[in-house]
Amino acid sequence: MHPVRKKRMITIGVILTLLGGAIGLVLYALSTNINLFYSPTQIHAGEAPTGVTLRAGGMVVEGSVQRNPQTLDVSFEVTDYAQKVRIEYQGILPDLFREGQGIVAQGRLNDAGVLIASEVLAKHDEEYMPPEISAALEASKQADAKAY
């Protein structure tokens, strides 16, 4: 290869490596801020500040959703399968909110470790399937459960 071209190539390579490294370090240093939400484990470990607005995320625990029939108050627990956090919310939940679904709630932690949420967003996973297949999977799961 022509020496001038080789020199240019090396220059670009060095600049890209340095810049990539710098950006990588910045992102690594900021990773707690880039994370959209705290997991229940982090909240239990005391990594999440109390009294300021933050987001908590996890799966809604099956059977934990309690609704007040008179008002829009709803209370539920989220888990990352290690720890649980109780969330209280007043308002309309997104359509995808259901037990076993991932959610992200924004609000403040009170002293009891309960998140008083002002907004609840639903997460969904990367799997898509037609309703018939989902129903068939559900049926076979139940058949399996009966067989035991």
Partner: peptide, 24 residues
């Protein structure tokens, strides 16, 4: 994958079968 996000991870990966059926 690196951070907690609201956006879900990729449905299509080079090494795995796509997480949706063929008619989708």
């Amino acid at each position: 994958e690196w951070w907690n996000t609201l956006h879900q991870p990729a449905t299509f990966k080079l090494t795995e079968k796509p997480a949706m059926p063929v008619e989708m």
